[in-house]
Amino acid sequence: MKYDVKKAFDFIDEKESEMKQLWIDLCKKESQSADIEGVNNAIAFLDENLKKFGMTTKIHKFSVGANSITAWYPTESTELEMALLGHLDTVHKKGLFGEEIVKIDEKEGIIYGPGVLDCKGGVVVASLVARALHHIGYDKVVKLAFSGDEEVGHSLSNGEGKKFFLDELKGFKAAMDCETGFVDGRIVVGRKGTTNYKITIKGRAAHSGNEPQKGISAIREGAYKTINIEKENDYNGIHYNVGVIEGGTSRNTIPEMCTLTVNVRFRKLKDLEKIEAFLKEMTETSFVPGTTATIEKLSLSDPMEENEKNHKLFEHVKNVSEELGFGTPYSCYLGGGSDAAYSVALGIPTICGMGVKGYENHSLRERAVINSLVERAKLIVKSILTLPESF
Rank of each mutant, 00 (worst) to 15 (best):
K270L: 03
I275F: 05
T285I: 05
G247A: 08
E306Q: 14
S301D: 08
I219H: 02
I245P: 11
N228P: 00
K225Y: 01
T291Y: 04
R220M: 12
S299Y: 02
E232L: 14
E284I: 03
N233R: 07
G243C: 11
K274D: 08
I254R: 06
L300Y: 11
L279V: 11
E308G: 00
T249H: 12
R265W: 10
E305M: 05
E230A: 04
I295R: 08
I219R: 04
V244F: 06
E256P: 08
V288I: 15
A277K: 15
H239F: 10
L298D: 06
K225F: 01
G222I: 01
E230P: 03
P303I: 03
E281H: 12
K270W: 00
E221I: 04
T292Y: 02
N228G: 00
T259Y: 10
R265V: 11
K268G: 00
N228R: 11
I238V: 08
E256T: 07
E306I: 13
T292K: 10
T253A: 15
K280Q: 14
G248Q: 09
N307Q: 09
N241C: 12
E246A: 08
G248R: 09
N241H: 12
P255A: 13
D302I: 05
I229S: 00
G237Q: 03
M257I: 04
F278E: 06
K231W: 00
E230M: 14
H239T: 15
E296L: 13
N233D: 04
L260T: 07
T292F: 01
N228S: 03
V244I: 15
E281P: 02
E296Q: 14
R265L: 11
T292S: 14
C258Q: 09
K274Q: 12
E284N: 14
R265T: 10
I229K: 01
H239D: 04
N307A: 10
E306N: 14
L260M: 09
E221F: 01
K297E: 05
V288K: 07
Y235F: 13
G247C: 08
R220N: 13
E273S: 09
S286N: 13
V242G: 09
I229W: 01
S299H: 03
I245M: 13
N236L: 11
E273V: 08
Y235M: 10
D234P: 01
G247W: 03
R267F: 00
N233E: 02
S250Q: 12
I275M: 07
R265M: 09
I275T: 07
P303K: 05
A223M: 12
L300P: 02
G248F: 08
P255Y: 12
I229A: 01
M304F: 15
K274M: 11
K225E: 00
L279R: 07
A223P: 02
M304I: 07
L300A: 03
I229T: 02
T259G: 03
V244W: 08
S301A: 15
T285Y: 04
R251L: 15
L298P: 06
E296I: 11
E281G: 01
F266S: 08
D271N: 13
E256N: 09
F266M: 10
R251M: 14
K270E: 15
I295D: 03
M282A: 07
Y240R: 12
M304E: 07
M282Y: 06
Y224I: 07
R265N: 12
T249R: 14
V288C: 06
T285S: 06
E305I: 04
P289H: 04
E284K: 09
C258E: 12
K268C: 00
V244N: 10
A223Y: 06
